[in-house]
């Protein structure tokens, strides 16, 4: 029984870590390329969840099978959120690219508040029930106390996203262009890279993965409101800083460290302090290792 509880918390930690990772990737990629903490990133996650809710609700009247509804809702939510991310960069950040970094940061905070309040007004301030898009898998029946189907899907999807993203960054032309732009923007332009395109693609990918996380976790916990993006966005940001902001493996590692810490601490200590652990972590990292676990120190020029 005790061991089963331990395993349950383990799966809970993995699930949290996966969701944090899907969001933290966007933070860290955007920071790597334009050195901006995109505080409106959590709102993209929330908008992804809302879009999926609306589409799934409409589709539920058509009598389509659950799998079809889920696939359509997730795909459209991801595309719609990616368009949001793209537009957000064009409106709120691109005009400020030559401005001091603080200006873009303030713009990001403004964007975050704007999107929250926009959803609050356009939708509702109340919690809305979110339909179960995943259903129950028969083969998970024996372990249903430890891992639910929605958790299983979150883990698999996150693993697939991480593998695809690694391939994209490491081996493709656009991936190399992204790394080059992150390392030296002027030199990247001098090799003929269109950095506006690279930045747009970065926002699109980051928004898409965040929206994917938003839909999957909402289906898991069954309710959403306009505020869900804020707290989880800050936590994913903590995860990105923990791993070393700007580093992709760092963001993933930081997310799982944070996910497991929260899961075990709420399980064995007290769930009242759930949010304390993440922010205590943030304070400790910033004091003792500001560059994060995998963060790179500034390289000296020869």
């Amino acid at each position: 029984m005790k061991f089963e509880f331990f395993l349950e918390l383990f799966v809970g930690g993995l699930t949290r870590g996966s969701i944090y990772a899907l969001i933290a990737l966007g933070y860290t990629m955007v920071y790597g390329i334009i050195k901006l903490i995109n505080f409106a990133h959590g709102e993209i996650y929330m908008i992804g969840a809302f879009t999926a809710l609306i589409i799934a609700s409409v589709l539920s009247f058509t009598g389509l099978p659950l799998l079809a509804i889920a696939l359509i809702a997730i795909t459209l939510a991801v595309l719609y959120s990616a368009a949001y991310g793209y537009t957000m960069e064009k409106i709120a950040y691109k005009p400020l690219r030559q401005a001091p970094r603080l200006s873009a940061l303030i713009s990001a905070i403004g964007m975050s508040l704007f999107l929250q309040n926009y959803v609050l007004l356009a939708q509702t301030p109340d919690f809305l029930p979110f339909p179960d898009l995943i259903g129950e898998f028969g083969f998970l029946k024996p372990v249903e106390n430890i891992m639910r189907s929605s958790q299983f899907v979150i883990l698999v999807v996150t693993a697939v996203v991480l593998v695809l993203l690694t391939i994209l960054i490491k081996f493709t032309r656009i991936g190399k262009a992204m790394r080059a732009t992150a390392q030296d923007q002027v030199m990247a332009r001098l090799t003929g890279i269109n950095i506006n395109r690279v930045i747009s693609i970065t926002f699109i990918i980051g928004s898409a993965t965040a929206a994917l996380g938003g839909v999957l976790i909402s289906s898991h916990i069954s309710q959403i409101n306009f505020y869900i993006g804020f707290i989880i966005g800050i936590k994913a940001f903590v995860a990105a800083v923990l791993g070393g902001i700007g580093s992709l493996p760092g963001a993933v590692l930081g997310s799982f460290v944070l996910g497991f810490t929260e899961s075990y601490a709420t399980g064995y200590i007290s769930s009242d302090y759930e949010d304390v652990f993440a922010f205590a972590f943030l304070v400790l990292i910033l004091i003792f290792k500001p560059s994060g676990i995998l963060g790179k120190p500034e390289l000296q020029k020869v």
Binding site: K176, A180, Q183, D184, G192, I193, L299, K301
Partner: peptide, 23 residues
């Protein structure tokens, strides 16, 4: 070829050359 070389520090030599042929 700019002042101070501006080699991409975390790309390999081979990848730096690939970047030169980006277009």
């Amino acid at each position: 070829v700019p002042e101070g070389r501006r080699i991409f520090p975390y790309l390999t030599v081979r990848e730096n050359l690939d970047m030169g042929a980006y277009l």
